[in-house]
């Protein structure tokens, strides 16, 4: 079982307590009616789906209840870091120790 560090509880807790909630750092457009259909489609459905480091949202639903963000490697399934929602995306090169 994966252990996930909840930045609010500050503990390594079992994956079972958490729910995955899609890619992180996707802001809803401020004025949707100003967007073209293609731009709106991109916002709704188009995700980066990378091979490697992925920034994603998780929710500690069976715990403190909070949403937070994580950087996870989609190849190894290893969590590089987790951080509270609202914080800026961390520097990948610092997380992986190599240039991204």
């Amino acid at each position: 079982m994966l252990l996930i560090h909840c930045p609010y509880c500050d503990k390594e807790l079992p994956e079972l307590e958490f729910a995955y909630a899609g890619e992180a750092h996707i802001a809803r457009p401020v004025d949707p009616s100003a967007l073209s259909d293609d731009e709106w489609r991109d916002f709704l459905f188009i995700r980066s789906n990378p091979r490697g480091t992925h920034f994603e949202r998780w929710r500690h639903i069976h715990g403190c209840g909070r949403f937070f963000n994580a950087a996870r490697d989609t190849v190894t399934d290893k969590f590089l870091t987790t951080y509270p929602a609202g914080e800026a995306r961390p520097d990948i090169s610092k997380l992986t120790g190599s240039k991204a």
Binding site: K11, P14, L16, E17, G63, C64
Partner: peptide
């Protein structure tokens, strides 16, 4: 309970499964 029980110390509580 999936959580490591050592994390649930005396006088503390948590939501879990």
């Amino acid at each position: 309970v999936p959580r490591d029980m050592a994390l649930v110390t005396v006088g503390s509580g948590t939501r879990t499964l």
